[in-house]
């Protein structure tokens, strides 16, 4: 992993149609390119398995639950806790009135889920990013970009050729500082 600390060569293939791009990724995977390291950029979401790339499962909903739990406790603290901090009787009703505590707690729980889900999305998708990293602007115009990071010239040439053979409209190299692969 730490062999080439300085930079890594990425082969970028830009495809005009999805079948060709899909085929290219599967062929690359067959010839030993890591499924985890390849990246595919698209303008619309494709079903899982359309490309040979492997994506990580999303754990966002677990953080949503965490947010919900946090919201619940916050709601309890506000609705029941603050009433106990400064008890003022109103309307002959109890200081901690559970039905109203329920309403407030419910809203805080939902707010917690909403905020944590958003934060989890940003965290897991590594957004917002200051620099777009390796990006192909024609993706938003309907192209599909396949990015293959390669160690060593030999592999790079192989990848280049495979992309071209699969029908890429454009293939070029881009060097990026070597960080973790998935941060591309």
């Amino acid at each position: 992993m730490s062999a080439s600390r300085s930079s890594v060569t990425n082969i970028v293939g830009v495809f005009g149609n999805v079948e060709a791009a899909s085929q290219a990724t599967y062929q690359l995977a067959h010839s030993g390119f890591s499924r985890d390291n390849m990246t595919v950029m698209t303008a619309e979401p494709y079903p899982l398995g359309a490309f040979a790339t492997r994506t990580k499962k999303s754990f966002i909903h677990y953080l949503s639950l965490l947010g919900g739990a946090g919201g619940l406790l916050t709601g309890l603290a506000f609705a029941a806790g603050t009433a106990l901090l400064y008890p003022l009787p109103t309307g002959g009703k109890p200081i901690v009135a559970w039905p109203t505590v329920g309403v407030i707690t419910y809203e805080f729980t939902m707010l917690g889920i909403i905020i944590f889900t958003t934060l989890a999305f940003l965290f897991f998708a590594r957004l917002p990013r200051r620099q777009p990293g390796l990006y192909v602007p024609s993706v938003t115009a309907g192209k599909i970009a396949v990015v293959v990071p390669c160690r060593g010239e030999e592999r790079a040439v192989v990848a280049e050729r495979m992309l071209q053979v699969s029908g890429a409209e454009e293939v070029y190299r881009r060097d990026t500082p070597a960080r973790r692969w998935d941060e591309l």
């Binding site: 003022l88 009787p89 109103t90 309307g91 009703k93």
Partner: peptide, 11 residues
Amino acid sequence: EPVCPVYASYH
């Protein structure tokens, strides 16, 4: 009393 959001009305 209970409808006041700021405890201006209380017992």
